[in-house]
């Protein structure tokens, strides 16, 4: 009796678990990645979909076989024992070949998407923007008309006077026209070269729609490059535990047309 109940429960759980994956919704909430707005994201989505199919089939097959065998053999008494046809040999072989092939295939194909984000450098005409993460806000910096970023002096950071990056405009010509912003404003269909550094502790930069996530590591200058393909406003979240205000550390990514972006930049310079 117990074996039959177990079999029914495990099969029901397996099938019910698959429903939200197939329908993309659970209790009315959408449980699917949002529309991708990057030029590289489709590779990640494709990889995710393929893995979902393969892992999903493996999950269903294993749970159903478990339920089926327990249904059939659970609670049997003194029946003649049988061995699985072929014994362990074929099972080991199947695991080696199937999972091995799947691992190699996914590993090889998946590295393409990874390479797109990480192995190709930003192109020479990408728009350089700097981002600084600190407890508990992101700040963005644009080089201004001279195309040069002023040097950063951590000891000169003064958030009360809006000197978020610790610039020294009195002695540093390049810093004088730098534009600082709490919002990440970028032009659409233009490659962005995002240069990242942390002010205090570890943080992370996560935009679901851009299929981008990268840690800020204090003491390390890291960079990302991407192209956004759709005008709109998107949330940037911190995903690396950074202290009490972590849950509230966010900024907005504002993707504009090139004209709107130029106007915004002009307005900021004034």
């Amino acid at each position: 009796m117990g074996g039959k109940i177990f079999a029914v429960i495990v099969i029901l759980i397996a099938l019910a678990s698959a429903v939200p994956i197939i329908t993309h919704t659970f209790l009315g909430a959408s449980v699917t990645p949002p529309e991708d707005i990057s030029t590289h994201g489709f590779e990640i989505d494709k990889q995710l979909d393929e893995t979902m199919v393969e892992a999903g089939l493996a999950f269903l097959a294993a749970q159903l076989v478990l339920g089926f065998f327990v249904w059939q053999f659970g609670g049997r008494k003194d029946a003649p024992l049988k061995n699985f046809p072929g014994g362990a040999k074929y099972l080991i072989l199947a695991a080696l070949l199937l999972v091995g092939a799947e691992a190699i295939a996914l590993g090889a194909v998946g590295s393409k998407a990874w390479a797109k984000v990480y192995f190709q450098p930003a192109s020479a005409d990408a728009l350089p923007i700097q981002v600084q993460a600190g407890q508990f806000a992101f700040y963005f910096r644009y080089a201004g008309p001279d195309g040069k970023f002023g040097a950063i002096h951590p000891d000169k950071i003064d958030e009360g006077n809006s000197n978020f990056f610790g610039l020294d405009p009195e002695n540093d010509v390049a810093a004088r026209d730098d534009i600082q912003s709490g919002e990440f404003v970028i032009p659409v269909n233009k490659e962005i070269h995002l240069m990242m550094h942390a002010k205090d502790v570890g943080h992370s930069f996560y935009v679901r729609e851009l299929r981008l996530q990268q840690d800020f590591v204090p003491g390390l200058d890291l960079s990302l490059h991407f192209t956004a393909t759709k005008v709109g406003k998107y949330e940037i979240l911190c995903t690396q535990l950074c202290g009490l205000g972590h849950y509230n550390m966010r900024a907005y990514l504002n993707v504009m047309t090139q004209d709107d972006f130029n106007n915004w930049l002009k307005a900021q310079s004034n």
Binding site: G2, G3, L66, F69, G75
Partner: peptide, 12 residues
């Protein structure tokens, strides 16, 4: 899984 096949599985 393969070992479960053909066993006299006690359920407790």
């Amino acid at each position: 899984l393969g070992s479960l096949y053909g066993s006299n599985l006690r359920i407790n």
